Amino acid sequence: MATFVDLFCGGGFGARGAVRGGGRPLVGLDAWHMATKTYKANFPCAEVVTDYIENVDIKGLGQTYRPDVLLTSPECTSHSIARGAKPGSERSRETAIGIVPWVEAMEPRWLIVENVNRMKKWDRHNELVETIENLGYQVSDLHLNSADFGSAQARKRMFLICDREGTVVTKGQLLAFSDGTRMCARDTIDWGSSYRSTKLYSPGRAKATIERAERAIAHLGRGVPFIIVYYGSDYGGGWQTLDVPLRTVTTIDRFGLVTWNGNEPYLRMLQPSELLRAMGGGNEHKLPYGSRREKVKLCGNGVCSDVMTAIFQWINFNKNIGIPAT
């Protein structure tokens, strides 16, 4: 069983996938107390640290913990296209460089760095890769879509999968550990729920929301449920069908579900339990703390569990502990 230390651990979605893939969490670290509180609720045997990585006694932790894997997901907001036109924060970006002392202190065999694809456009991306290589790692630089690994969400991310013993991994090799299941947005919906839904054509409804909905209705016809997509760079007309994976879950409410009562369309926002399902949380993962807004943020900040499951299955296979390739 591959042990791991989880930097920028969030609510533990990446760790959930790692555990399913045969991993065991030793430490989860995040600067947001709601994230570490949620992490501890899901992985009570792990130590949790609530702080910024630069404030932590790295050498002390390195003497205590020698994980097989250092799992990291540095801040992505200043790389992400979802931030719109706001200028990026170099300090936020440099949390990626901040993982290097952790690698030096803990000397894990494997290092995993997850971030948005646009991180490759960062002018220090190559520096980060070269630094990792100079520490003795073979770096596999992959772009992976969670939908290919059985998630009900299309979440495209960069993964640096780094092995001190020189093993290279490809997307195809990781997909060999997936069962080939394909899920879609429809699979995330709590169809039997009693969540409050209001008439689409209600007084005060934003004109842009009505326009999104009417584009979908014109395409699908009346009586067909669909999802309105808010925010971010959207080239699909502001809506999507339920028969394809949900678009990327973000840290703010982005998805409205339109259903029908006879000929009347109704609208409600997707709930944290549904976003949790889109993140691959399954029945095991819980969001027991925080407001609705905080739970949405936890989901949007997470790593899709299904991708991490495949990565840890591959790691454990290479660690020779008896998890066969499929």
Rank of each mutant, 00 (worst) to 15 (best):
Y231I: 07
L267N: 02
M279L: 10
F255K: 06
G237E: 09
A185V: 00
A208F: 11
T209Y: 06
Y231K: 15
Q271W: 02
R277M: 11
A185M: 00
I217C: 07
L287F: 11
Q271N: 02
R247W: 06
E284R: 13
E284M: 03
I217H: 10
Y289T: 04
S273C: 05
Y195N: 01
V249T: 13
S273G: 03
P265W: 07
M279K: 04
L220S: 07
E214K: 14
P245K: 02
R205F: 05
Q271V: 04
E264L: 14
N261M: 10
L246F: 05
S197M: 03
R254F: 07
E264R: 06
D190C: 00
E274W: 02
G280E: 05
I210G: 05
G256P: 08
L267V: 14
N261Q: 15
N261D: 15
G238Q: 09
S202H: 08
G204Q: 08
L276G: 01
D243F: 05
Y201F: 15
R222T: 14
Q271L: 02
L275D: 01
G237P: 11
F226S: 13
K207F: 08
G204T: 11
W260G: 07
F226G: 12
I189H: 00
D190P: 00
A213H: 09
G223E: 12
